[in-house]
């Protein structure tokens, strides 16, 4: 069976990967299913049919309030953050050409965490209120992430960058960044400590619509951007020599993609903290399903990432009720063994 089917419309034509479309549809359904289940569970249990009704404004008043005001922002935030982290990981793995690259192992999420904690410490007054708008938080996180990404990249540069050196230096700098974050927490306002701890583990607890509407444009625009520049990523994967040979400005594209990737990781970290290993796992699962062409890989792995975080949050919320386990604990608990499995599979 032919995997691709051409799509022509006047002067525009597109080669559509049927398998990718099928995978995309399947994961969309899966995400929708988990979202509905998650919307329905909690202190007040709502059956799935009622949830759907409430979403479209046809449910009971109470159900509508719970679903639309309390639970929906949280679900959307989890979804967006997962998508952003997964897309960021997919890009990193492409430009570094190594399956082990991910925003957390490269210290990028660490850098974003440090930036966010610094932001909260510096711009808090004595009454623990922020002195500047929370809208600036994603920018701070992005700067932290990007700075960290470039520092790691620069330190790993030795007439070129090898993936291993990149990961090792990322590990080292993650330790250092964690130390700096600790200083910030210790000298920041005391209430911050608890908040930051929950937040560095990665949790979507306490999400509100304000956060969702701030993250939404960032995440979707950047993911769309990556999707459009998929052709650059595909070329990058062939290696510097071939990429240069076919006319790609390799280093420039790489730096640019690194910036977009950092921006994605940073914007996710700004709102939900470092949800670990999503950026590693999702692109891998995606690659298994649709192969490594980025036009298909980016959207599919983004959905998988959203699914992972959504699922982790759902389990964390319901499994140990009334306690809430941060979503990051679950993603790490699945992700670390997965990482090790990857380690065992890689041949060199």
């Amino acid at each position: 069976m032919n995997r691709y089917t051409p799509l022509r419309w006047k002067r525009v034509s597109l080669l559509v990967d049927k398998k990718a479309v099928a995978a995309l549809g399947a994961f969309l359904l899966l995400v929708a299913g988990v979202a509905i289940l998650s919307l329905g569970s909690g202190d007040m249990s709502i059956p799935p049919a009622e949830v759907v009704k409430a979403l479209f404004g046809a449910g009971e008043g109470m159900h509508e309030l719970v679903v639309r005001s309390f639970r929906l922002p949280r679900i959307l935030l989890a979804l967006l953050a997962g998508m952003a982290l997964a897309a960021s990981g997919a890009v990193l793995q492409g430009i570094i050409r190594n399956p082990l690259a991910s925003p957390d192992l490269m210290g990028i999420t660490g850098g974003a965490s440090l930036a966010v904690v610094t932001f909260l410490t510096v711009f808090s007054d004595r009454a623990n209120a922020l002195t500047v708008s929370i809208q600036w938080l994603p920018l701070a996180a992005f700067l932290g992430a990007f700075l960290m990404g470039t520092i790691v990249y620069a330190l790993a540069w030795k007439g070129g960058v090898t993936p291993l050196r990149l990961v090792l230096i990322g590990i080292g700098l993650t330790h250092a960044v964690q130390a700096l974050t600790t200083i910030m927490i210790l000298f920041g306002p005391i209430y911050l400590a608890t908040q930051v701890h929950i937040w560095t583990t990665g949790s979507v607890n306490g999400a509100n619509w304000n956060q969702v509407t701030t993250l939404l444009p960032w995440a979707l625009l950047l993911i769309a951007w990556i999707w459009i520049s998929a052709r650059h990523l595909n070329i990058q994967e062939l290696g510097d020599a071939i990429a240069g040979g076919v006319g790609s400005r390799v280093q420039r594209e790489r730096l640019f993609l690194l910036a977009v990737s950092s921006a994605l990781a940073g914007s996710a970290v700004a709102f939900v903290g470092g949800i670990g290993f999503v950026g590693l796992m999702a692109p891998h699962i995606g690659r298994r399903i649709v192969g490594s062409s980025y036009g298909a890989l980016v959207p599919v792995s983004a959905l998988i990432g959203g699914f992972l975080v959504l699922g982790a949050d759902w389990i964390g919320r319901t499994a140990f009720s009334p306690m809430e386990v941060p979503a990051g604990v679950f993603t790490s608990a699945i992700g670390a063994p997965y990482f090790i499995y990857l380690l065992l599979r890689t041949r060199n």
Binding site: D104, L105, I171, Q178, H197, T200, T201, G202, G276, F277, P326, G328, V329, S332, A333, G335, A336, F339, I340, L343
Partner: peptide
């Protein structure tokens, strides 16, 4: 990776 795992679990 074990370090990342334990750090996350501790937090």
């Amino acid at each position: 990776s074990m370090w990342l795992l334990f750090a996350s679990l501790t937090q």
